[in-house]
């Protein structure tokens, strides 16, 4: 799905989290929103997912105005920073949650639901953990379950907030590749937020460098490295 962000701004009380920003995300791209904390990258992601609403500006999904769509209507697969798995449900029930939340007419029958959950567990390469609770999983496993749960609703796009933030270096490397693979298999337009420039440069097709609520530069990792547009970008990516 093609995403068009037009002059979006966000005000929290008297502080401006986002100055008017515009950005076009081509369909099927894997995009990193890169910047230090307070740069507005998470706010922008949450606006795309419908968890925040912009003070001004428009969001278009495939050319259609999506600015006022509710969070449920957007069908964005969202992976939260601390994964936000439902701690009182098994992994299976976590993944099936979005399917169960559908109106009765669109809800798949029980065996179909089980088949889909099993398939997603295979996709994240954890086929045997359906009966476990989130507290019994490692950090990396939790992140992958959160990804499977977001994919279960057959989302129109995938939004990830610092998906590797809470993991140790080795697991982070593995899961980077995991996300790349899942993106390539599903072909979903994917936007992830990170403050780690290595992660953004290595994983993304398109990197959006942000600072103080503004977009500093948008480009392919190689282009940004070769031609940083502003002193901030030069310093932040350390070239």
């Amino acid at each position: 799905m093609h995403i068009e962000i037009g002059e979006i701004s966000k005000q929290f009380g008297t502080t401006a989290a986002l100055l008017p920003v515009s950005l076009a995300i081509p369909s099927g791209a894997l995009v990193a929103l890169l910047g230090p904390s307070g740069s507005g990258k998470t706010t922008l992601l949450r606006i795309l997912g419908g968890l925040e609403f912009p003070t001004a500006g428009r969001v278009l999904f495939d050319g259609a105005d999506a600015t006022n769509l509710t969070v449920q209507e957007r069908r964005a697969g969202f992976v939260f920073q601390s994964y936000a798995l439902f701690r009182h449900m098994t992994v299976f029930d976590n993944i099936a949650y979005g399917l169960n939340a559908r109106p009765r007419a669109q809800r798949p029958p029980r065996d179909e639901m089980a088949r889909r959950v099993t398939k997603l567990l295979e996709l994240i390469q954890l086929p045997d953990i359906g009966a476990r609770y989130p507290s019994q999983l490692s950090g990396g496993q939790r992140q992958r379950v959160a990804l499977a749960r977001a994919l279960a609703i057959e989302p129109r796009m995938l939004l990830l907030d610092e998906p590797f933030g809470a993991l140790d270096a080795k697991v982070r490397k593995e899961l980077r590749q995991g996300l790349r693979d899942i993106h390539d298999t599903t072909g979903l337009t994917t936007v992830f937020v990170t403050h780690d420039q290595d992660e953004a440069m290595e994983l993304a097709d398109l990197v959006v460098v942000m600072s103080m609520g503004k977009i500093e530069q948008v480009g392919k990792p190689a282009d940004i490295r070769a031609r940083p547009a502003t002193p901030f970008v030069r310093e932040f990516i350390g070239v």
């Binding site: 997912g49 968890l51 449920q72 964005a76 969202f78 798995l85 949650y97 979005g98």
Partner: peptide, 16 residues
């Protein structure tokens, strides 16, 4: 609020 937000993004209504 994260778990509630996650449920909302998965399509659940407020009551659900």
């Amino acid at each position: 609020r994260a778990e509630e937000e996650a449920a909302l993004t998965l399509g659940a209504s407020g009551w659900r």
